[in-house]
Amino acid sequence: MTLFQQNIAEVTIKYSHKIKPSDQVRITGSKSVYDFVCPLWPDLEYRERFAVLLLSRSLKVLGLSWISTGGVSGTVVDAKLIFQVSLKSNASSIILLHNHPSGELRTSEADRRITRKIKDGAKLLDIDVLEHIILTSETYYSMADEGEL
């Protein structure tokens, strides 16, 4: 092994799942997303988290990836992490998700800005951003349903 080979990191990309396609959950709309994700979401009323739901071409769930965890009033979202996991899982489309611990369902300017940024980047990668949902412990807000996407 040469000195050059010793000083370079090896990059591996791996995605595996144990659920047969016939057993994967199919997303049919914002309510089905909320019903699927809400029971899996820790700390809905405690701290803000951001996640991405990864979908196949037939809108079946490939996985859920936690992108960031913040404090009571926000979290930092790194779009590169969203694209990394989307490409790694071979997702055809994604759904953005985050919670508002305050219970407030209105979108903020920061919510709209990160949605636009991710949607623009995803377009270059041929990945559709279908939805951005804000969750609370009682209900949800769908940016797609409300015409904000």
Score class of each variant (00 low, 15 high):
residue 83 F to D: 09
residue 72 V to H: 12
residue 54 L to P: 08
residue 86 S to A: 05
residue 69 T to L: 05
residue 44 L to I: 02
residue 69 T to A: 02
residue 96 L to T: 05
residue 81 L to G: 02
residue 64 L to F: 00
residue 41 W to H: 04
residue 65 S to R: 11
residue 59 L to Q: 14
residue 46 Y to L: 10
residue 71 G to T: 06
residue 67 I to K: 01
residue 51 A to E: 05
residue 63 G to D: 07
residue 60 K to P: 15
residue 57 R to W: 15
residue 86 S to G: 12
residue 82 I to N: 09
residue 98 H to F: 06
residue 93 S to V: 12
residue 53 L to A: 03
residue 97 L to I: 00
residue 94 I to G: 00
residue 52 V to W: 03
residue 75 T to W: 14
residue 42 P to Y: 07
residue 41 W to Y: 07
residue 81 L to N: 05
residue 74 G to P: 01
residue 50 F to A: 00
residue 84 Q to Y: 09
residue 74 G to F: 05
residue 46 Y to P: 04
residue 43 D to E: 12
residue 79 A to N: 09
residue 94 I to M: 05
residue 55 L to M: 07
residue 57 R to L: 14
residue 89 S to D: 03
residue 41 W to Q: 03
residue 77 V to R: 09
residue 99 N to T: 04
residue 94 I to A: 00
residue 51 A to V: 01
residue 83 F to T: 15
residue 51 A to R: 05
residue 49 R to D: 13
residue 80 K to M: 08
residue 62 L to G: 03
residue 53 L to W: 10
residue 92 S to H: 12
residue 50 F to W: 06
residue 76 V to W: 15
residue 68 S to R: 01
residue 83 F to I: 12
residue 91 A to C: 13
residue 56 S to L: 11
residue 72 V to L: 10
residue 76 V to Y: 14
residue 39 P to Q: 01
residue 54 L to A: 13
residue 54 L to E: 09
residue 88 K to D: 11
residue 73 S to P: 13
residue 98 H to Q: 04
residue 57 R to T: 08
residue 70 G to T: 07
residue 79 A to F: 07
residue 87 L to Q: 09
residue 81 L to F: 15
residue 53 L to Y: 08
residue 95 I to M: 01
residue 64 L to A: 10
residue 87 L to A: 04
residue 93 S to Q: 11
residue 47 R to Q: 10
residue 59 L to C: 14
residue 61 V to E: 02
residue 90 N to S: 05
residue 80 K to W: 13
residue 48 E to G: 00
residue 73 S to K: 09
residue 96 L to P: 04
residue 84 Q to K: 12
residue 61 V to F: 03
residue 83 F to L: 12
residue 46 Y to G: 06
residue 57 R to I: 15
residue 47 R to S: 04
residue 72 V to A: 13
residue 96 L to A: 05
residue 40 L to E: 07
residue 42 P to C: 03
residue 85 V to H: 03
residue 48 E to I: 07
residue 90 N to V: 15
residue 58 S to I: 15
residue 90 N to L: 15
residue 68 S to Q: 04
residue 89 S to K: 05
residue 82 I to H: 06
residue 58 S to H: 14
residue 66 W to A: 14
residue 73 S to F: 08
residue 59 L to A: 13
residue 58 S to G: 05
residue 51 A to D: 02
residue 75 T to I: 13
residue 97 L to K: 00
residue 84 Q to C: 14
residue 38 C to T: 11
residue 87 L to E: 13
residue 98 H to S: 02
residue 58 S to E: 15
residue 65 S to T: 09
residue 69 T to F: 13
residue 97 L to P: 00
residue 89 S to E: 03
residue 48 E to Q: 08
residue 41 W to V: 02
residue 38 C to A: 14
residue 93 S to E: 07
residue 46 Y to K: 15
residue 48 E to Y: 14
residue 89 S to Q: 07
residue 50 F to R: 01
residue 79 A to I: 08
residue 39 P to K: 01
residue 42 P to S: 04
residue 61 V to T: 06
residue 49 R to P: 11
residue 93 S to H: 10
residue 93 S to Y: 07
residue 40 L to N: 09
residue 95 I to K: 00
residue 80 K to Q: 11
residue 68 S to D: 03
residue 84 Q to E: 11
residue 63 G to N: 06
residue 65 S to W: 07
residue 80 K to D: 12
residue 82 I to C: 03
residue 60 K to H: 11
residue 48 E to L: 10
residue 64 L to I: 10
residue 60 K to R: 11
residue 93 S to P: 13
residue 66 W to G: 13
residue 91 A to E: 01
residue 56 S to T: 10
residue 71 G to C: 06
residue 55 L to W: 04
